[in-house]
Design a protein around this nucleic acid. Structure first.
Lengths: 236, 236
DNA sequence: CGCGTTCTTGAGATCAGTCAAATCAAGTGG
DNA sequence: CCACTTGATTTGACTGATCTCAAGAACGCG
């Protein structure tokens, strides 16, 4: 199964189908939403450029950010399966998405059996990331959670060639409000933890950039030291 | 897509394939593991009877239970996709599973295109449950988390006909240690919250049984009041 | 009945949240 | 270039939720 899903390139026929589907290309300005929670889905999206995040809003204003969406990742599949999105997607920077029409998706899956494997693969990958988040939120301290987040993020950016300085420095367009809502803490407390890690010369997060000063110590702090799955990113 | 995935019965041909695959049937005694975290997967499993849960263990003994596995649910797909299980599955009661051999899965998916849709559907469903957990853990109080857990669980059991008293009472084979490790709190604190809800005549959890005394108030307490997806359970 | 496990309760410590204000960065208009 | 505005970050003092440690009570099993 692994062989069949993640490790091969598109066939020409598949590529033709993909191009046909990719007709719609959406540009979302920073701070705007690609879709809202509880919307009825019309498309499945692949992130193409920029940063975005999936989040769910409570009636009383609380927000949980479920994950950061980076180029190449798929968004909206569970919504498509159930007829209602459980989360919204917001662009953190200006971002572009490829939209695959839901109406044509079933036929496509029937005809291109490799694609459904790819979908399953991407879906599994996303599930793992949410599980890692749940583990952090449920059983880790704020410091451990932050360490795990930055190590994970660094690895994902590294695979995409979106880092500098040997993968230890990269653009980071999220504010502390977003990170706090992702890691389940208040801005105030996140800020204190950030200051602490900066004083210990482990991690610096500043206006639009994250720099890892001591990856080893950061890894040791993290509550999820298992090696992340080293897998090629199947572009959809 | 929704129509194509969750709302139709098996065709005869599909059913034939399924029976062929279901050859291996495993019985796991209470407290034993179906597989361990970091194992290389050999099968994908469908829960057939009994209660089980997916969990991840830390080196220092901390444990996060990622979800309860009920009959009809699929387990082990992300592991199959990545070649390594990220969590273990433990039977809470004696439990039976149907094992689908990974070796034969790719061929099956190629030949029975409806099955991959089903897999995707089940995978999406599981992702939603983990997301709900992450939302609870990240942004809810202990009381809200417990309320959301019991309401969700009740709904899942109701759909399976595993409840009594109009769906307000059901067998609950998990101990407080398991619930605490699922909801990200200490046994001690969980116990206090349980006692509080019992005093308010909202929820009673006792040796092997859960009784919802006031579903309305429980729902209001819950941080996830959206209606859960009302969807038929596609048996695999 | 005896014993281990699970549940329950209390007291004190700690982590993280709240409230409030000061600081800092970046943009705007004069 | 400078006052002013606005939003993000940082800090302090205090509060509250949750954890830790510890012990007692209840249950289930042989």
């Amino acid at each position: 199964m692994r062989r069949a899903v993640g490790f091969q390139d598109f066939s020409d026929a598949e590529f033709g189908f993909m191009s046909e589907l990719k007709a719609e290309h959406r540009r979302v300005p920073a701070g705007a939403d690609l879709f809202q929670q509880d919307d009825a889905p019309t498309h499945v999206f692949t992130a193409f450029s920029g940063w975005a995040y999936r989040y769910r809003l409570f009636g009383d204003g609380r927000r949980q950010i479920l994950g950061v969406v980076l180029p190449g990742e798929l968004v909206g599949v569970p919504g498509a399966a159930f007829g209602r999105h459980a989360y919204a997607v917001r662009a953190a920077t200006e971002a572009e998405f490829c939209a695959l029409s839901l109406a044509r998706l079933p036929a496509l899956l029937r005809e291109q059996e490799g694609l459904s494997m790819r979908l399953l693969w991407l879906s599994s990958h996303e599930q793992r990331m949410v599980e890692r988040l749940a583990i952090s939120l449920g059983r880790c301290t704020a410091e451990e959670t932050l360490a795990a987040f930055s190590v994970d993020l660094r690895e994902r950016l590294l695979r995409r060639g979106m880092t500098e300085e040997g993968g230890l420095s990269f653009a980071f367009p999220l504010g502390q409000a977003e990170v706090a809502d992702h890691l389940g803490m208040t801005i105030v407390h996140l800020n204190r933890v950030l200051r602490k890690l900066e004083q210990q010369k482990i991690l610096v997060v500043r206006r639009g950039r994250m720099e890892i000063l001591d990856l080893d110590r950061l890894r040791k702090l993290s509550c999820l030291h298992e090696p992340a799955d080293m897998v090629p990113q199947p572009l959809l």
